[in-house]
Design a protein around this nucleic acid. Sequence first.
DNA 1: CCACTGTTTGACAGCGCTACCATCTTGCGC
DNA 2: GCGCAAGATGGTAGCGCTGTCAAACAGTGG
Lengths: 360, 360
Amino acid sequence: MAERARTATDAEAAPPRRIRRGRGAVTLAEVAAGAGVAPITVSRAINNPASVSDALRSRIEQAVEALGYVPNRMAGALASARTRVIPVIVPSLANVVFVEVIEGIQETLEAEGYQMLLGSTGYDLATEAALATTLLGWAPPGMLVAGLRHDKRTTALLRHAGIPIVEFMETGRAPIDMNVGLSHVRAGAAMAAHLLARGYRRIGFVGLRMHDDYRARQRYDGLRRRLAGQAAITLFDRAGTEGQSGGQSGGQQAGWDALPELLAIAPALDALFFANDEMAVGALLRARRDGIDIPGRIAIAGFNGLPIAALTTPSLTTIVSPRRQIGREAAAMLLARISGREPTTRRLDVGFTLEAGGST
Amino acid sequence: MAERARTATDAEAAPPRRIRRGRGAVTLAEVAAGAGVAPITVSRAINNPASVSDALRSRIEQAVEALGYVPNRMAGALASARTRVIPVIVPSLANVVFVEVIEGIQETLEAEGYQMLLGSTGYDLATEAALATTLLGWAPPGMLVAGLRHDKRTTALLRHAGIPIVEFMETGRAPIDMNVGLSHVRAGAAMAAHLLARGYRRIGFVGLRMHDDYRARQRYDGLRRRLAGQAAITLFDRAGTEGQSGGQSGGQQAGWDALPELLAIAPALDALFFANDEMAVGALLRARRDGIDIPGRIAIAGFNGLPIAALTTPSLTTIVSPRRQIGREAAAMLLARISGREPTTRRLDVGFTLEAGGST
DNA sequence: CCACTGTTTGACAGCGCTACCATCTTGCGC
DNA sequence: GCGCAAGATGGTAGCGCTGTCAAACAGTGG
């Protein structure tokens, strides 16, 4: 303490123009001085306690405690050219689906002592590119990005970053590096098969701002191809109510609004496949209020397998995606590569399950 | 290009033992060499383009482009003792409520060129302390933390960090620095007044793992105090189904399970105030399936004001919290202090609105 | 044409930490 | 008691960038 104060005073007096630039926070050197050891020893005591003798370690720990030392990660990262921060880029946090994947990622990273740095793009590819640049500036050991579709800059950037990358959510060809997800095309086809089996022949697909949501488009494509020649299929792309907090909430309202409108526009429809469970639930709630018989008048199906799907009356037919698992697998794959191991596979299809309910 | 290669070769040949330590990424110095200027000029061209002549700036930009230079933030931050990264600590991402606050924070920070570093504690105060330490290691210019209750270490750490701090979600006394939120006690009291006005006199409060959720306890306290002497009040703290993705989803299931059980245990109840809308919606859906008349047999109310509350039949009585606004205000307050301005106020109560629906 | 102000550019040092190598202990077998 | 391996500690030199100050270079009025 006294030591420090004196040093500061000397510095001010003797070399007349030396300015203190740092934040003024306690540094490792100060801890070292306090404990009467060399800075490097403090560094070791903190990062690899086993390599320091018990006596010194406890002296150092005491000094750390007394001075309230918080290591400056920036300096450490710069010196060692290593960080334990892994950026994760997702389109939105308003969507439960991404949040659950993130949770899976987080628990896996955390268990290995890594930290997650989250960025969201708002479904904008330019924002994604900017974000990727910024995040790469933190010299991360790897990176996780939602989706396989990016703009050219992002792809180039990530490809040349020289670090392992996992693209998660959907499967597809030509990932930048590694890929974990499920086939949304096949999921759409599975729903088509289900609806056909139950005898529906005039099917509508209801999406929300599908310009942004290409995974919904993939589900639609899968549906359409599988239905081709066997049933009529119509696409309804809803604008949704902006302003609202998007994702989930907007979805429910959109489904609520869509049901009566579509029945009026296209009364011959006998089934609706909504782009997600939120919309489907909104439609179910609307049917309940307006006394529309589901599935008698029209069948309703969703996608994602949110828990609420099982609680509605009738229960909602949906496709369950293993979101947490996607997150865990993606993180595990990345960590494997970071630590030099080769993961079991660089491409993982986690699959999906069709949960047939009373709504179809 | 040739220049670089030659340099590398020389280094290998001449000083026999010099090792390259860095990540091997393109550095500012290389860009400077490429553009034929001093490193500091490149730094300026990037951080303050106006201070460099047009001719040099475009030469530098070209070099940046050609070499694919990505500035190393760590080095920059270390040298300037400034970052534009603001850590945000929340208990969980599984809860929509926090996510919406986060969105508000994010949009405000982003607009000012700051980046958000998100950490979640899983409602564990020890984890929170660890996280706070780690995050402070990034030498942030400020910090945002959910809630006013932390363990002693966290409080001490943040108080002595010497940076502005905003605690958001609930209002209360003695914040570490600044505070934005609403009074959960008053919200509980408001619901009590509403239920009394509608003639309910045997009221149950249904929480989920309330040991963790002290804000729910505050709502309960507000309810209890306001009802004291005028109505009977019972607390039901549900364990909920673990394993599930917690928050929202777990909540719906918990409400679904709770309704029939509570009616069996305490048949005299005439109203239930659920700790959140998810539980309340779960209960409404259960009532729908089991043919329980709401509010005839029993009234149901929730908290948060999620959009789905308006879509159920009957619509759900709930208290709307301005979550996005909390996020925006918290971030704005922090940014004001970071940039040396004094915010309009250091304590902000954003209030709430009781939305009376058909369920009470 | 000169002193003088304002702008653009550069040299230098250092932010706080860790990699690398050197040095100093210690313990052990013979 | 000596040589040697293994372990503990320290000295030195950066990591890649920016703050500070100084130098070089215009532009202006008399």
